[in-house]
Design a protein around this nucleic acid. Structure first.
Length: 110
DNA sequence: AGTGTGACACTGG
DNA sequence: TCCAGTGCCACAC
């Protein structure tokens, strides 16, 4: 545990707070962390997070609702499978009703 | 210490 | 309104 990893640690924490059947965007997490322009960094953090089982990285997508990071889930449609397992409809890497399943940490966590 | 990279987001044409 | 290009911040090498 390194205090310097505060940013990453925050990302992990927020990711773990994502409720079942919900998804969020990298930008939303970034904004919640106070670094709206660091949305890309969130993806990088998830890259490390995916190394951990406690981090539901499959629930994190870009603001379009596209599973851009599915390529990092074993190179298969595993990410889509996980989302579908949570009753989230995914078509062609695009989350359907993204606005409905979208989970905003700023609003939910206040 | 500096450069490159990245699972994004935004602005312009 | 949609597609493409640029900008961004923080981590890894």
């Amino acid at each position: 545990m390194k205090e310097t990893d505060n940013f990453f640690n925050k990302v992990y924490e927020v990711a773990r707070l994502i409720p079942y059947g919900r998804v969020t965007s990298y930008g939303a997490i970034a904004i919640y962390l106070g670094a709206a322009r660091s949305a890309r960094m969130v993806g990088w953090a998830m890259n490390k997070a995916h190394h951990l089982e406690d981090i539901p990285a499959h629930r994190v997508v870009n603001r379009k609702g596209v599973l851009t990071g599915k390529h990092h889930f074993g190179g298969t449609n595993l990410m889509q499978q996980l989302l579908e397992n949570e009753k989230i409809i995914v078509v062609d890497n695009q989350i359907q009703d993204f606005e409905k399943v979208f989970w905003n940490p700023l609003k939910e966590l206040s």
